[in-house]
């Protein structure tokens, strides 16, 4: 009997976690200053599998299982960056940021400025956000929180193609980047996305700060990101059957915020709905709407609305969760109200 290697899976059978692992492997291969720190990233390959295979390939110095010491190992990234390395730090769930935000917002975000350009902070904070049925302390998005703190670039990709390409950009830039995955997407295969873009094997980058029109439409500008894009596309299909043509924009990053793409769309549609899985108040939805009004003037909008988590912790019970987190159904309803 001859042993034969199993054929590699079809590219569109890769899930998001696998594409992230692929991205990290490519970046670590091309730049030996790149290294990975975090809980369960080495032996276990990440609790969502985003770092699987990296320990075997790059060794434990560069793929380091840390103790549960986020303040300690996030601070390590600061020293490593000042010493010339390019650390990727995994905060397993973004909800855990509370115990190490100090190093993120007082050190990583501010040192380039405080040092008058003397030091750069090529650090990626890679972390999983979003809904996964795990209630208040394991389901937040928090990109609005990071975006509020000056000095951080904040990305939240929606497709396997963007997860790969934005990770390449995040590792390559000398700016600090908070890279927020969505737990609801991590185990989803490329072929199961509505928003399908083939993921090439060769390295490529998706620029940070460029939004993408995912579905062109003329009646309503629907601006969202991360898992919200899939929900928006599902809603748009339903609405199309009702004769409502939705322009779906995937922001891809919160900082920088690509307002040019948004305002171009709003100029055509005159109606703006911003959908966000993060909290409603003082966040992305208000920011996008305000900047749109500042750019185009209030008369450019016939109708405007926002749909986000209404300032409440994410509940445990599914019935309650569905009541507060935007989904395809609630997004469609919000669009109908907007065009009514």
């Amino acid at each position: 009997m001859t042993a034969t290697a199993a054929p590699p899976p079809a590219r569109d059978a890769l899930n998001v976690s696998q594409t992230i692992s692929e991205a990290l492997a490519i970046e670590m291969q091309r730049d030996e200053r790149v290294l990975l720190l975090g809980e369960d990233v080495a032996r276990n390959g990440g609790v969502f599998g985003c770092t699987r295979g990296l320990l075997e390939r790059f060794g434990e110095d560069r793929v380091r299982d840390t103790p549960i010491s986020e303040m300690g190992f996030t601070g390590m990234a600061v020293g490593l960056a000042m010493a010339g390395f390019r650390p990727v730090v995994e905060i397993m769930f973004v909800d855990f940021i509370g115990v190490c935000l100090e190093q993120v917002y007082n050190a990583i975000a501010k040192i380039p400025y405080m040092s008058g350009g003397g030091y750069r902070m090529p650090v990626v904070i890679k972390t999983a956000g979003g809904l996964i049925g795990s209630a208040a302390q394991h389901s937040q998005c928090l990109w609005g929180l990071f975006a509020h703190l000056p000095g951080l670039q904040v990305v939240a990709p929606s497709t396997p193609f963007d997860y790969r390409g934005l990770m390449a950009s995040a590792v390559e830039t000398d700016n600090p980047v908070v890279y927020i995955e969505h737990k609801g997407l991590l185990l989803k295969k490329g072929r199961d996305f509505r928003n399908q873009v083939p993921v090439p094997e060769a390295r490529y980058k998706v620029p940070i700060g460029k939004a993408r029109v995912v579905r062109p439409g003329g009646d309503v500008s629907l601006v969202t990101l991360s898992a919200g894009v899939e929900h928006a596309l599902e809603a748009a299909e339903v609405l199309a059957a009702e004769g409502i043509d939705v322009d779906v924009i995937d922001l891809r990053s919160v900082v920088p915020l690509d307002m040019e793409t948004v305002t171009q769309s709003v100029t055509r549609t005159g109606r703006l709905l911003v959908v966000d899985e993060d909290y409603l108040s003082f966040g992305l939805t208000g920011e996008v709407i305000t900047r749109t009004i500042e750019a185009l003037g209030p008369s450019a909008l016939q109708a405007v609305a926002r749909h986000a988590v209404p300032d409440v912790p994410i509940p445990a019970a599914r019935s309650l969760e569905q009541a507060v987190v935007p989904g395809a159904g609630s997004i469609a309803a919000a669009v109908r109200r907007l065009v009514a």
């Binding site: 190992f73 990234a77 960056a81 010493a83 190093q103 050190a107 008058g116």
Partner: peptide, 27 residues
């Protein structure tokens, strides 16, 4: 912050130590 001498500081009490640990790991 002085890249020429590898000197830095923080105004947050205790926050210096994890950063120093990063340098130690780099070395």
């Amino acid at each position: 912050f002085d890249p020429a001498t590898n000197f830095s500081a923080t105004g947050i009490v205790g926050a210096s130590l994890p950063v120093a640990l990063g340098y130690a790991y780099a070395y």
